[in-house]
Amino acid sequence: MLSRVADAIYWMSRYIERAENLARFMDVTFNLMLDLPQSHQNAWPPLVYTTGDHEYFREKYGDANQASVIEFLAFDPDYPGSIRACLKLARENARSVRETISSEMWEQLNLFYYMVREASSNERIKASPLDFFHEVKQASHLFKGITDATMSRGEGWNFSRLGRLLERADKTSRILDVKYYLLLPTVHDVGSPTDDLQWQAVLRSVSAMEMYSKQFHAITPSRVAQFLLLDRHFPRAINYSVIGVEHALHAISGTPMDTFRNTAEQRVGQLRSELAYTTVDDVIQHGLHEFLDQLQNKLNKIGEAVHETFIAVRPINSPSQSQSQENGYQRQSIFIR
């Protein structure tokens, strides 16, 4: 497969997954705010702060409240980290590989793009953002389903899986992280009914409520962390995603599992083993935030290695001109604190 094509498929999937997670992220914040007592802290400003682009935000929007933050993260056409911009980038990538993906995938992504674009100028939709977030999630699921139903399990499909799961591992870690971040000043809330509601909101935001409940009958912070971080079978859990990334990489290269022939395989193998042989108690003792922070760094390093291994192909002795798509503007600035 052409390196440029692999790159475009990888980023197409990453941007769609990113858009979906932005919706999930705002969804959980929205729900947290509904559950929090009036006097409680405002959960919206931290969302802006975590993007690292608060100056841009302040200049354009002023105060961070529900309406302004949603406008910023969902609909801002000029902000490269908004849902709308992600869809535009995903579509541009898809457009450059239309001959490789199925026409059904293209059609769905095209509809998805138009849906978001039209929502941007529709006040009725903006008045009930939860419906919009739901639609974004559904559209992303549909795209993933169509991909699985129409694309051969070849390199292209594996690059798509690779991009999606790498992005998902990163974003699930950030959703988990923000809950701890929000609760830091109010440790005394831990174990209170409000706290339960909030953890439920977190689980719901990654569609994990039912699957979690089947395994654990009570909601405790460490069990939720364990589930989202270490579960091998829940598809939005970090461990599941990392295992999937590893499978995708080995399917692409043909390298036998548990061995490696390139840096990407080496790094993901190391991360997978670490997650396999750790317990949630170790993690919490070490500090969940610090652990997630390091995890995000490792995921970035895997992304860089993927680019170096498969995308930046060049004849011997010719200088590298290749640049990862994200180097241009922001290196994962969204959600980084």
Partner: peptide, 12 residues
């Protein structure tokens, strides 16, 4: 890319 008198494409 042209190298060694032939045209090649860059693949993964």
């Amino acid at each position: 890319v042209v190298t060694g008198g032939r045209v090649f494409m860059r693949t993964t």
